[in-house]
Design a protein around this nucleic acid. Sequence first.
RNA 1: GCGGUCGUGGCGGAAUUGGUAGACGCGCAGCGUUGAGGUCGCUGUUCUGUAACAGGAGUGAGGGUUCGAGUCCCUCCGACCGCACCA
Length: 848
Amino acid sequence: MSRYNARTVEPKWQKAWEDAQTFLATRDESKPKYYVLEMFPYPSGRIHIGHVRNYTMGDVIARYKSSCGFSVLHPMGWDAFGMPAENAAMASGGHPKDWTYSNIADMRDQMKPLGLSIDWSREFATCDPEYYGQQQALFLDMLEAGLVYRKNATVNWDPVDMTVLANEQVIDGKGWRSGAPVERRDLTQWFFKISDMAEELLDALDGLDNWPEKVKLMQANWIGKSRGLQFSFDLTTPSVGHDEIEVYTTRPDTLMGASFVGISPDHPLSKALEAENAELAAFNAEIRKSGTSEEALERAEKRGFDTGIKVKHPLNPDWELPVWVANFILMDYGTGAIFACPAHDQRDLDFCRKYDLPVIDTFLALDNPKPVENEAFVPPKTEVVKWIDHFAGLDEANGQEAIDTTIDFAEQRGWGNGVTNYRLRDWGLSRQRYWGCPIPVVHCKACGIVPEKKENLPVALPDDVSFDIPGNPLDRHPTWRDTPCPSCGKPARRETDTMDTFVDSSWYFARFTAPRAETPTVMEDAKYWMNVDQYIGGIEHAILHLLYSRFFARAMKITGHLPETAVEPFDALFTQGMVTHEIYLTRDENDRPVYHLPEEIERTDTGARVIATGEPVTIIPSAKMSKSKKNVVDPVDIIDQYGADTARWFVLSDSPPERDVEWTAAGADAAWKFLGRVWRLAADLGDGDDTNAALEKATAQAIHEVTMGIETFGFNKSVAKLYEFANTIQKSKAGPGAKRKAIKVLAQLMSPMTPHLAEEVWAHLDGEGLIANAAWPKADPALLVDDMVTLPIQINGKRRSELQVAKDLPKEEVEKLALADKAVQKALAGAAPKKLIIVPGRIINVVI
RNA sequence: GCGGUCGUGGCGGAAUUGGUAGACGCGCAGCGUUGAGGUCGCUGUUCUGUAACAGGAGUGAGGGUUCGAGUCCCUCCGACCGCACCA
């Protein structure tokens, strides 16, 4: 008996596929197309077992769809711009370009042995000038279409390194390298007008039937549509050129509970007051010494500064409210000014308790009408509450009714307007960094901002740069930066900001349809291949990447680069879970954590211990893989040890694809053993004309269930069914002819998951051609129906017995049989049942 | 802080979407194969209980709806993802 040897078998079939160009995507108008895409990786240099899971899922779909007669596009590329390349250059010299391309080469070498059905002829990296040049062309078209503009925006500034910091580089309000407290700083930056499409991006979510509900919900919340009231508070005395403060509120119904008016430290009034109020200037300066992330702002302790200015309450001119500058008010949302109603907003309440401001209830709960103390009363907008003094005359009403009534009231009397607002802000794309796509514009003293001419694209990054000085090397590059104005020809300066890497990943899926074209896309190809039929990636991209891509697809339609039908570029989305691994932890003498590699520990009856020292180990299960925690599984090691099919089989087993899966050595071993068992089934098999009805029925059921599993992204269920089917074949007493037929189907059903083994089995059993090109098996529907069913009998909801009946036995007959059942007889003890529930084909419940 | 998700045996997980909880795999136990170990094959395996049945308990905790709840609703606890310059 020959042993299955993945090490020789896998490269053999990979070569066979390559020689036959099996996975080359061709635009074949005679066939339906299918576009499978997994989110492309960042070229860190090492593939991760999470990549293996992601790409294997896509590969299963791609191979399956191909077997079903589709012309499949399954491409791969690299999300290759970004900070890690620059960080590497700063840390250890070298050039981001060399670092990136060498990483790509390494990762490609690690990926190819997985045997993925990828059309590698379409591969590109976003840092290829051929790609980002087309991105620059897109940018210019978007600029012309009015989809891009400039405005001021706040960034994290490291005053020591003299550089802009990303949010992740700000740790506890300090720069990660310098340790200096960061400051907020205003810069003029480029923006995409995504907020203009807020309504459209929100509405269109309804049509995305094959997206996870949770992703749509997260996007809807992110867009954050709200209707509220915009109105002004008049200052009692005009101050620094301001005589009113315009506020936006989503709860105008609580206006009688107003306690103060709050403005953002960056509000124009606050900034104007700084000039004459040193104390406020100091306060604002202090507040600006925090990160710009929303999380940092919201979590910061509530702080405020009383400006001394007073405003009049719009409903009662005798009622004066103080104006405070408060750190939790965002200048980006609404008007950058609010009125605070502490009784019905926890943040406002915390603030008022801290600064001893009044708390006024405006409504009370019907069942528990207690005044607010230290917990704001914030009922759902659907809950009916009792109003204390509603100025528009409400008594008992729910929040939504109150809001609507109040807006109408204000509009009728002309002191306020109902306004629809969105939380979604415009997308700032400027980055003060080298390793990104240059923004193709020129700053000319005479002509202002001038787009680069398309024939001059790409505006390529210069290679002769260094990273030994902080800041953007483009900014200080002597020749690249200086360029003649495309309009007047006089000396001018290039824009030295580059684009956010989210731009690169917002249209790569479209580029894959014509990756070598001299325009961003080619309409014929885009029309044939778009949309992506199945997109697969991590849940961490649920909001930004997907929202930006949806925006870009619309922008590309407007600028003529995508057809109208492609404005929602991803027909179906699947978000897969992580691959996790246990962490092995001990503590050193100072109680600091010490992490151990799996090979450094051994299992004991009670847990595990360090082999070298015998020290007991704490095992943390299901942890995200991280180098520093020493729990990373390298796919290259797994492929060396077991082969790609084992790794592929494992990552599809056990966990549902949307959930995390824990990598275990024992699980990998089990996968490997199973593949060996399948090979042995086929290896010594004879031939014959014999048939076997039971095996044929099992085969039909396996085809049905495995296919359903793949169609519904239940790969773990397909895997379980394949185990069962293999067990059935193994235990079957059928002759070699019948078994041969069953095993060939088994190989086909396994081929999307373990393609190398499947080819080997197929070839061994004299299958025709490559299994990759064989048509997907079809189940005989007649073999899928059972004539008899087993009905469980419950007594008072507890299973007590069961009944074998013909599938179509009339209800009355089932009833008779159920009541005649021994367990039922015993429980009834001669009495009649209170109720008898019979769900045909499902269950019987006798209520006593 | 805000938004979203998840929680089932010793472990990973299944459950036709409100109808037999624990499929399938790991681990463990017993038996067989093997010179031994591993491999391989067979049998068993939620807990409790029993000689064996019977019986009882059971899906993070508590409550509710229902003939019937892992699944629906409410409260709480824990873990994870995102928060606009990480990709």
